[in-house]
């Protein structure tokens, strides 16, 4: 707008330092005001407070799994049997579509913790309950488009491009795990 100066019949040039300073301050002010109106759409404090949850895993028997809701998504916590661990460890990594060693996917080898969302198109795979179809590799099976996951949650067969993601977590003590 300062370009439209043809009507300025004043004695001095209008684009001097003073006017620039005013305009700059105005621009800074508008920018500063914009931030709160943008930031209000970010997760609020009560949402963030639930972004970290603690889960008691003492009641999960070997061979069983529980599903907890975390950040609006299901998290699978499976207490693996020795056979399952063995199976996950002995796979030749070269055979995997998304190669990753089992050791890199767990902190304690008997507890496998995964975000239970199929990496294909976001369905929830089966395999949590005792009677569920677990797929050809004994892990999970996504009923939407037939992706098979193994006992480490890695993709083995089907259209999904990647392994089930491992959420950020840590063991607070032997029976409690903190997600997030």
């Amino acid at each position: 707008m300062a370009e439209n100066a043809q009507t300025g019949d004043g004695g001095e040039t209008r684009r001097d330092f003073l006017h620039l300073a005013t305009a700059a301050m105005g621009a800074v002010g508008v920018g500063a005001v914009a931030w709160p109106f943008i930031d209000q759409m970010n997760p609020a404090k009560d949402v963030l407070a639930l972004a970290t949850i603690e889960v008691n895993i003492s009641a999960i028997q070997e061979g069983q799994a529980i599903t907890v809701s975390w950040r609006g998504k299901p998290v699978f916590i499976r207490h693996r049997t020795a056979d399952e661990i063995e199976e996950a460890r002995t796979v030749d990594l070269d055979d995997l579509p998304d190669p990753q060693a089992d050791g890199d996917r767990v902190t304690k080898e008997n507890f496998l913790i995964l975000v239970g969302v199929c990496t294909h198109l976001g369905c929830i795979p089966l395999g949590q309950k005792t009677g569920d179809v677990k797929g050809e590799f004994g892990g999970w099976f996504c009923p939407c488009h037939g992706s098979h996951y193994d006992t480490s949650g890695r993709i083995r067969k089907g259209p999904a491009p990647a392994n089930l993601p491992v959420p950020e977590y840590e063991f607070v003590d032997d029976t409690t795990v903190r997600l997030g």
Partner: peptide
């Protein structure tokens, strides 16, 4: 709880 909610 909302970010800057009190201000808005």
């Amino acid at each position: 709880d909302v970010n800057f909610g009190w201000m808005i």
